[in-house]
Simulated scan of single mutants.
Amino acid sequence: MAVTNDDYVFYNGRKLRKGFTTGTTATAAAVAATKTLLQQEPQSIVAVKAANGQQAEFDVQDDQFDETYASVAITKDGGDDQDATDGMLIYATVTLRQDSEITLDGGQGIGRVTQKGLANEPGMPAINPTPRRMIKQSVRDLLGPHRGADIVISAPEGEKVAKLTYNPKLGIVGGISILGTSGIVTPMSEESWKHSISIEMNIHRQRGDDRIILTPGNYGEDFLTQTMKIPVTQQVQMSNFVGYVLKEAQRLGFKQVLMVGDLGKMIKVSAGIFSTHSKDADARAEVMVANLALLGAPLGLLKQVYACLTTISMIDLINEAGYQAVYQKIVDKIKQRSEKLLVRREPAVVVDSVIFSRSSGLLASSKPIEEIEAEWR
């Protein structure tokens, strides 16, 4: 197991232990295998530096070796992070060469890149540049300048675990990725999540797309495909990071964005709230009441809506009172707020939006829904 020398982060008042990336784990396995091979004896513990310079120690497992090769395993320790790869074994096999070259490849359970737009070219193993450099340099330091080796990183459970990661959407097939820029996993980190979304968007851009569909999550994706009959080939899930993803769309050069989401999330965007997680903001009742008031809704209705705990219960009251026009007001403001967020930079981005409710279906769209469906199918 890895020892994290009591390195913690605080998140929402909780003390959480940091861990190590698959990149640091693979580096440790490569170092342990090389030491085993050179010394011709098993290693019980291996110490390496993560990419950010932090010292890390790992227990070495399942060592096998002879005079030409060595293979060892290290358990991936993600700390308190909810990571699909936490606890899986990462193997490194190091085989001596007759020359001084050092090669690095992915074996069983390590994904292969199939699309442009990622850090590695199609056909390469999904071992990102920082861990690739760390692994090869660490082995070079042990071998010296005149000996070479073939290094193969593998993960027996990788193909199964990869189904729980972003890899299938990124066009990485056959296993997990060896990742990490700092080498450290920060629990509950949103940065790695955002980075994954950016990578997925860049894949769309690299293949020539200049427009993209954004949904907060599975509900939006289901409405897009099942109700609007629009395929997911141009769609990315943005989670709660609406502002970040919109700015990324502009940075990457998309000219047109369609956002499809449940009212409960998207109503916040209409008020200029671009991080829609409840921990950041929950002004759904206030936004709805303000828009209803502008339509002249009676005080009694406003009080009832304000007391609602969910947008579904708000919708029931609004529909019963005949104020469905409020949905169009909200969806129009989603478009206005989103385009205003991007107005100061190029390229200009046209944003349209569709809002729905899981209980009652389509609520409103920033232009006729038939036009949107025809345009994006």
Rank of each mutant, 00 (worst) to 15 (best):
L252Y: 03
R140Q: 11
L363H: 02
T310W: 08
S338D: 02
I315K: 05
Y323W: 11
S353V: 08
S198P: 04
K15M: 14
T75R: 15
S177W: 07
G106A: 03
G296S: 04
P125L: 00
T27F: 08
I102R: 12
V289A: 11
F274D: 13
T36I: 12
R17Q: 12
A364F: 02
Q61P: 05
M134C: 03
D6C: 06
T215V: 15
V31H: 06
A325Q: 14
A56D: 02
L38N: 07
V354P: 06
T165W: 06
I197R: 05
G180A: 03
F10D: 08
T85C: 15
I330P: 04
V287C: 02
D99R: 13
M88F: 09
S189N: 12
M124K: 08
L142A: 02
A33T: 06
V60H: 10
V351H: 08
G300P: 09
L258H: 01
I355M: 10
L295E: 13
I199V: 15
L263G: 06
R17T: 10
V326M: 14
K194E: 10
E200R: 14
E190F: 04
L342E: 02
T186E: 15
I372M: 02
T227Y: 10
I203K: 14
I372T: 02
R284H: 13
E200S: 15
R147F: 09
K340W: 04
S44H: 12
G243M: 02
I230Q: 13
V326Q: 15
F20W: 15
E101H: 09
A249I: 05
E370W: 00
T21P: 12
P298F: 02
D282C: 06
V236L: 09
R17G: 10
D81K: 13
A28N: 10
D86L: 09
I369S: 00
T165A: 09
Y91S: 08
G53N: 10
Q55N: 12
T95V: 08
G261S: 02
Y8G: 10
T24K: 14
E346M: 04
P187M: 08
A281T: 08
L224Q: 13
G361M: 02
I369H: 00
